[in-house]
């Protein structure tokens, strides 16, 4: 039966000010129940303050075969990393 239901990707915001992060997926017949299933499956232990669900079919993904041309060029560009200055300890979530 579960295979009849579409898949939804679940995103949880763990606290105010942070971004929603992908945590997994649920099956559900529609958006409202997808939200209920996401709540029951992924926020049982106080993991979040906000939830998003997105139909998995609507996710546009990059092609793994293109990984080389898409991502490898960034490897040689270390000047793009914030590694040339110190980040104070008090600054979290960077």
């Amino acid at each position: 039966m579960s295979s009849d239901w579409p898949l939804w990707e679940v995103f949880v915001r763990s606290k105010g000010g942070l971004s929603h992060r992908h945590v997994g997926s649920v099956h559900a017949p529609d958006a409202e129940l997808a939200l209920a299933h996401a709540r029951d499956t992924y926020t049982r232990r106080l993991e979040g303050v906000s939830l998003w669900v997105v139909p998995s079919a609507d996710i546009v993904a990059s092609n793994p075969e293109q990984a080389g041309e898409l991502f490898e060029p960034a490897q040689s560009k270390i000047y793009r990393h914030p590694t040339f200055y110190d980040i104070p300890d008090e600054v979290k979530h960077i």
Binding site: M1, S2, W5, V26, H27, A28, A36, H37, D40, T41, R44
Partner: peptide, 10 residues
Amino acid sequence: VLEVDISLAN
């Protein structure tokens, strides 16, 4: 289904 199982257990 698994998701409903979890909902009911909650």
